[in-house]
Amino acid sequence: MEKLLLLGAEAIAQGAIDGGMSGVYAYPGTPSTEITEYVQHNKVAIERKLHSQWSANEKTAMEAGLGMSYAGKRAMVCMKHVGLNVAADAFINSAITGVNGGLIVAVADDPSMHSSQNEQDSRFFGKFAMIPIFEPASQQEAYDMTYEGI
């Protein structure tokens, strides 16, 4: 165990890596981009050859994450809030299929629209899909929730 100084996004990535993730799928979008970039440069992730290449969009990312879960491995899918609109079809249906390996969808909302077109609240999507939602108050919680959730 070690102490690290991390962005919230990076804490999620570290939590997923430590939690035994086999791959992350994502399309870049502020403020979620740093999650995947952290995995791309993490030593353990590189040694383990964890998947961390970018996807064409959030929908393909969500589906690939579900495919990795189908194969029994743990996966993470990352996007910004409006990206979840793109991934919504796969996201909602993945709650019905359920998972085989652990699957966590990390969504970064942008209230005040610092770099977005709206400030939609992704918790509605989680509730709509009827799946558990984690909402951290700190970077440590972001790490712990991802570690346990995946």
Partner: peptide, 10 residues
Amino acid sequence: MMRITTRLSH
């Protein structure tokens, strides 16, 4: 689902 906001992420 993990839901974070800009301020925590950054």
